[in-house]
């Protein structure tokens, strides 16, 4: 039971993933099958059932709002693909 309502190009774009035409065809078909399988959940009556985001609910976990040391700037930048003057370098965003 495949799901034919699934637009792989549209969703890959939302996910910011460039796919080759071959990948689009293969992943699109596989995901259609998987979505067909998960439709199984429609068999269940979930009226009145609370959704569950976490198994162990802990609410309002806060820490004291105080200044603490953090990793130095050089360490934070050490893994950057491009960096200069203490900044991450990215392509131009506005003309």
């Amino acid at each position: 039971m495949a799901n034919n309502d699934f637009d792989i190009r549209y969703v890959a774009n939302l996910a910011r993933i460039a796919l080759s035409p071959d990948e689009e065809a293969k992943l699109g078909a596989q995901l259609g099958d998987i979505l067909g399988y998960v439709k199984k959940l429609e068999e269940l009556d979930v009226a009145g059932v609370e959704p569950m985001a976490h198994a162990v609910p802990l609410a309002n976990v806060l820490r004291a709002d105080e200044v603490r040391p953090s990793i130095p700037q050089e360490a934070a930048l050490a893994n950057a693909p491009k960096q200069a003057n203490g900044l991450f370098i990215v392509p131009k965003i506005v003309e």
Partner: peptide, 14 residues
């Protein structure tokens, strides 16, 4: 249809 429903089924599994 998907995520919220799955979270509810998760409650049933728990």
């Amino acid at each position: 249809a998907y995520y919220l429903r799955a979270q509810k089924v998760r409650t049933l599994i728990k």
